[in-house]
């Protein structure tokens, strides 16, 4: 494909399909919490994040304080800081400050995952293409879910629920096959995440994810520091 925008858009299609199903669920939930379909759609357009939005709607429903809203969003979305930092290390020279201000909006788990595991530096147009497609999927799914959530048969809804995770697997398995260190980091993160889920249940999901990922990546860096040429590969 010729231009970077359409290449990004193409690579964003699985993200958009996954988002369509996940945000569909968010739309249903938001309406059940008393929000209008319009408010649900605006929230999706303004935030472009799953866990943070779900928690945000809970706070709105419970008439929580704005301080609580800030703290919860901060903790749940803190992982984006790590991702933004990681991504900032592999940007194309054309990624000027205005581009960074704009593209930062679209650093989601999935967009980060696809961009950060690419070999060549990321170009602004590539990211914009991916963000545009993902945004369309996320916002459309929310609007549809909010307006017509109950119309879809449940076995289809359930099957759509796994797609995002399927995509994560598609991203992490091939490098794990090639590099033992990546495999071990993945297993460590999964193991810690399981321990938090079943044994250390006092830690909330967002925190558990951050701790598991940071610990596993730190162990990887400690025992398998990457060589200069392997950096970003």
């Amino acid at each position: 494909m010729k231009n970077w925008f359409s290449r990004g858009a193409y690579d964003g299609i699985p993200i958009a399909l996954g988002y369509l199903s996940v945000s569909f669920g968010f739309g249903i939930k938001a309406v059940q919490s008393g929000l209008s379909p319009l408010a649900a759609t605006v929230i999706s357009a303004a935030n472009l994040t799953s866990a943070g939005q779900a928690a945000g709607v809970d706070i709105i429903e419970a008439c929580g304080s704005l301080i609580e809203m800030i703290l919860v969003q901060f903790v749940i979305n803190l992982r984006y800081s790590l991702m933004a930092l990681s991504l900032s290390q592999n940007l194309d020279r054309g990624f000027s400050v205005p581009h960074r201000f704009a593209a930062a909006y679209g650093i989601t788990d999935e967009i980060f995952a696809v961009c950060s595991t690419r070999k060549e530096p990321v170009r602004p147009a590539y990211m914009y293409g991916m963000i545009a497609v993902a945004f369309a999927g996320w916002v459309t799914g929310t609007a549809l879910g909010a307006a017509a959530g109950q119309l879809l048969p449940s076995d289809i809804r359930n099957a759509l629920g796994i797609m995002l995770y399927g995509m994560f697997i598609a991203i992490i398995v091939p490098p794990a096959k090639k590099q033992l260190s990546v495999l071990l980091v993945i297993l460590a993160a999964a193991g810690l995440s399981v321990i938090f889920r079943y044994l250390i249940t006092a830690v909330s999901g967002g925190f558990a994810m951050i701790i598991s990922a940071v610990a596993a990546a730190a162990l990887g860096a400690l025992f398998f520091p990457v060589k200069e040429e392997a950096d970003g590969a």
Binding site: R79, L82, M83, L85, S86, Q89, D109, F112, A113, S116, T117, N158, A159, G161, I162, L164, Y165, F168, I169, I171, I172, P175, A176, S181, V182, V185, I186, L187, A188, A189, A190, L192, S193, V194, R197, Y198, A208, M209, S212, A213, V214, A216, A217, A218, G220, A221, L222, F224, P225, V226, A230, D231, G232
Partner: peptide, 26 residues
């Protein structure tokens, strides 16, 4: 160390997000 850490972050994040949550997704 920090560069290595950032190199591993995406894999660690995705793994921690997927396991065990994927088994509750359907």
């Amino acid at each position: 160390f920090f560069r290595s850490f950032l190199y591993y972050v995406p894999y660690a994040v995705l793994s921690a997000m997927t396991i065990p949550a994927i088994f509750y997704s359907t």
